[in-house]
Nucleic acid binder design. Structure first.
Length: 430
RNA sequence: UCCCUGGUAGCUCAAUGGCAGAGCAACCGGCUGUUAACCGGUGGGUUGUAGGUUCGAAUCCUACCCAGGGAGCCA
């Protein structure tokens, strides 16, 4: 007898098959027992009827607990009364393990309770749907860059010093010295772009910021493309193409999952290039028009970003920020040196900044003076400055935060559900 | 680091100065089509911790611990 995945049972109507899985729920009306099974690919109802199977097997079905692991044999049949339209008429059962009393019930639980049991929480339909969407997002990103001729370059995770020198880093012993966990692969991507043209890295990023909000993790995943011979405009085009490509792919490939998590996909369906572009100056004007107090020269807060994003149906680029609020390597606008050729992409529906990027300084003298102004250790950046010494070219790149992107696509109110085992300010278990 | 909110049964919550409760879960029993099944019964408490006020504290006060949300910073 063939063992099949629940997602494929429709192909086996009127055949007897085996399903290996877990007991998600059990209902009984005395002589009929309904077992809801899950196997990671879906859910199916198995029906055991007294008299139609051996008394021993019926007794076994009666004694099953939530999350017990079983291999059940039965005949697949279509039945309107069954959730999903198909059910399994049980003919035999093999218990692999009877589960202890399972802590996660089908009723409501608090966030703290679930986070302490994240290893079990992952089994719920909502969490598996989110993780499948995350998988599709990552796959689509890699396909996009592959189709566009980018080369995947892995950036180091152990680094000798801060890339931007401002945010707090996690430190770790490195033999007789100290190393830091990477908070960005960008500088290394700039080096790789000078070797290969168009490159990207995709890896974990660590920030020891004491942020306690729905948008922050201390360990998160970021994709960071870097392109030689590309200016700010070219950079933005790649970004809007990428974001649109990924969203359309998820809408096509993960319909069921989006339905499981009850995501209203109306606004996502319209996400296609080009995205609106506004300058920082225009953004400040919009804030003022909306009655928000904001001083030119500051960076936008979460609330400001939401107000700005609400003015547009699509994600919106905000470009040419004051150089003072951006990283030292951002290239000044030649026509207006106090602002730089940077741009952030703000997602709709309050999801805030999902991309930050810009054109990099390609002039050695300017870069050297910026490093001095920011009190960065020059020795540590010697190699980086060297990129401007040997065939410097205009180049641009950006960083896209995977969890914020997935949270937006899924319509979640917190990024912690978009990553299997989230690391937060006060949480590193399980 | 700062601000706000919360912590009561395994879970979700009620009780606002006067007997610590309900639903679910667990356990026992019933039910031949259930849909977070339903019905009857049983067990289940150091009310986050330590002090204080009071005849009396889950409830009021102080400190601490833990969690959630937000600010700053950022993707």
């Amino acid at each position: 007898m063939q063992t099949v995945n629940i997602s494929h049972v429709a192909e086996y109507v009127d055949e007897e098959v085996k399903i290996a899985g877990w007991v998600y729920n059990k209902r009984s009306s005395g002589s009929v027992i309904f077992l809801i099974l899950r196997d990671g690919t879906g859910f199916i109802q198995a029906v055991a009827v007294k008299g139609e199977i051996s008394d021993g097997d019926f007794q076994t079905c009666d004694e099953l607990t939530q999350e017990s692991s079983v291999v059940i044999s039965g005949k697949v049949r279509a039945d309107k009364r069954a959730p999903g339209g198909f059910e399994l008429a049980v003919t035999g059962i093999e218990v692999v393990q009877i589960a202890d009393e399972y802590p996660i019930s089908l009723k409501k639980h608090g966030v703290d309770f679930l986070m302490e049991r994240r290893h079990l929480w992952l089994r719920t339909p909502r969490q598996t749907a989110i993780l499948r969407i995350r998988h599709e997002v990552i796959k689509a990103i890699r396909d996009f860059f592959d189709e566009q001729g980018f080369v995947l370059i892995d950036a180091p995770i152990l680094t000798p010093s801060a890339c931007e020198g401002t945010t707090t880093l996690f430190s770790t012993e490195y033999f007789d010295s100290t190393a830091y966990l990477s908070q960005s692969g960008q500088l290394y991507m700039e080096a790789a772009a000078m070797a290969l043209g168009k490159v990207y890295c995709f890896g974990p990023t660590f920030r020891a910021e004491k942020s306690k909000t729905r948008r922050h993790l201390t360990e998160f995943w970021m994709v960071e493309p870097e392109m030689a011979w590309v200016d700010l405009d070219g950079n933005l085009k790649v970004q809007e193409e990428l974001v649109s490509y990924v969203i359309q792919r998820v809408l096509e490939e993960k319909k069921n999952e989006l339905e499981t998590i009850k995501r209203d996909t109306g606004r996502l369906e319209n996400i296609k290039p080009p995205f609106p572009r506004i300058s920082y100056d225009e953004a400040v004007e919009i804030l003022h028009k909306c009655g928000v107090e904001f001083e030119w020269g500051n960076d936008f807060g979460g609330g400001d970003e939401t107000v700005l994003a609400e003015q547009f149906e699509l994600p919106v680029f905000v470009h040419r920020y004051p150089s003072s609020v951006k990283a030292f390597y951002m290239k000044p606008d030649p026509e207006r040196p106090e602002v730089c050729l940077s741009a952030d992409l703000l997602a709709p529906e309050g999801y805030g900044e999902i991309i930050g990027g810009g054109q990099r300084i390609d002039d050695l003298e300017l870069l050297a003076s910026r490093i001095k102004e920011h009190n960065l250790p020059e020795e540590a950046y010697e190699w980086y400055m060297g990129l401007r010494r040997y065939g410097s070219v205009p180049h641009s790149g950006f960083g896209l935060g995977i969890e914020r992107f997935v949270a937006w696509i899924c319509g979640l109110d917190h990024v912690r559900e978009t990553i299997p085992f989230p690391r937060l300010l006060n949480r590193i278990y399980p």
